[in-house]
Structures are given as structure tokens and as C-alpha cells.
Design a binder for these strands. Structure first.
Lengths: 112, 112
DNA sequence: CGCTGTCGTATTGACATTCTATACGAGCGA
DNA sequence: TCGCTCGTATAGAATGTCAATACGACAGCG
């Protein structure tokens, strides 16, 4: 995952959250996830294949996703990913984690 | 750095931001940084020594901090860290990074 | 028909960061 | 003197991400 202007560091660990969100909007194949993440973050997050596929495999392993081979709109062989019930729970949990953390940092930055 | 309930994953990369913020409020020794971070995040982030000291050394190496030996309020030998001008610039830069990212994720989570 | 580009998936190797666990010296109080 | 807290420090492992590279298949074009 990259946050454009060359900086890349800030925010590992949000990749799962963004992928879960993308798939929560509907099943997608790998590159589709990547594009949807870019779209919903308005280009702020770019997920490269080298980050994307290991993450998808990891999340499938964890039981948050199920995958099946299909064919893309362009008639290419593509692997579609779909959230499981556990995946939706995980998503909800990561959202509230995110909210807690974002709030905490926001407050921290205002401290005097 | 730990985010209590046992979860620990979400949010690597914010450690620097929080340390810079803590030191931007005034010079401190190592454990003091740890305590201030805990305080300003209201207990949401706990920075353990094994994360703290490597981070401080790394940031000193980067020229964001200068360190000097002194003595704590309890009369113990302690190493005080102070932001440099470069450190203040880095802080500003990380704050705006954070704001961009928090905004982008916030928006992303609202997508439909 | 062959060429080239794009789509889509995948892996490898390196790198940075963080965590757990452990260590140790020095001051303080009983 | 014993034990506790303070304060600093490191080693080892695990994790997650990135850059680079690869490859098969479809599509369009000359």
C-alpha cells in the first residue's frame, strides 16, 4: 500500500480495513479491490499487487473471505472474493478500532 | 506500542507522530515520553520500553531529537530528549500526513 | 497470423517496525 | 541489607509491506 508523494510509512494496518470495506460494498476480484480502494479513498491509498495478494490470501486463510474462480467483465480469468459472516464481524470490529484510535490521536494532537 | 484490549496490530507508524507530539510539549526523558503519550491519548496507546527506546534512538539518528544525560525529578540518571528544528518540521509534516489519511479513511468508510 | 499491450494473478527477497522477554545499575525506604 | 521502583537498554522473533519480476490469456491491429 502506498500513500503517494513518496512517503509510504504512516499507516500500516489499515490495509485490512480498506479491503474489508471494499468487499463489504460487494464481491470483487483482486485488481477490482485495488481499484475500489483507490476510488473510495479518492486516490489517497494505492494498493500494489505485492501488498494486495498476500493480504487477500491471509484474510482468506483467516476465514474472512471466500474465493472462487470466475471471469471478469473483460472475459479474463479472475478470482472473486466475497465477505463471510466472520469477515463482516471482523470489518465491524476494525471500524470501531479505527474510530477509537482516530479519536485518540485527534485528541492527543490537540493537547497542550 | 500497544492498543490495549489485546489487539495490537492496527496502526504502526503512529509511534513517531505521538513521540514527536509528546516532545513538542517540552523536553522529557524516555519513560516520561511513554507516560505523556499514555496521558494525551487517555490510555489508548501504551508505549513499552522495547518499542520506545529503539524509536528514540532512530529519531535521534535521523536528527529530529537531541539527547543529553541529566537527572530526573527522582534523582535518577535519565536521558533527556528535545526536538530539533528538523524534528519540529518532521512533526508538522507527520501531522498533515495524519490528517490527510484520517480524512481519506473516514470518507472511505462512508462510501456506499 | 503474429505482435503488442493490457488484464489478472502470483511470488520472491529485502526491509522496517514493533513486540516480548530479559537485563542491569542506581536510588530509596523499611 | 533487602526489595522495590526508576530508567535505560538489547536480543530475537514475528509481522506486514514494498519493489521487482514473472507469466498466461485475451484483445486489437497491421
Amino acid at each position: 500500500m502506498t500513500v503517494p508523494p513518496p512517503r509510504t510509512a504512516l499507516l500500516q494496518g489499515t490495509l485490512d480495513l480498506l479491503i474489508l470495506k471494499a468487499l463489504n460494498l460487494g464481491a470483487l476480484h483482486g485488481l477490482g479491490v485495488s481499484r475500489r480502494v483507490e476510488a473510495i479513498t479518492r486516490g489517497t491509498f494505492l494498493v500494489k499487487p505485492g501488498s494486495l495478494f498476500p493480504a487477500l490470501h491471509r484474510m482468506e486463510e483467516a476465514g474472512w473471505l471466500v474465493a472462487s474462480w470466475g471471469s471478469s467483465e473483460n472475459n479474463r480469468r479472475a478470482r472473486y472474493y466475497k465477505l463471510t459472516a466472520a469477515g463482516r464481524r471482523q470489518f465491524e470490529s476494525e471500524v470501531s478500532q479505527w474510530e477509537r484510535i482516530a479519536m485518540a490521536i485527534s485528541l492527543a494532537l490537540q493537547a497542550n
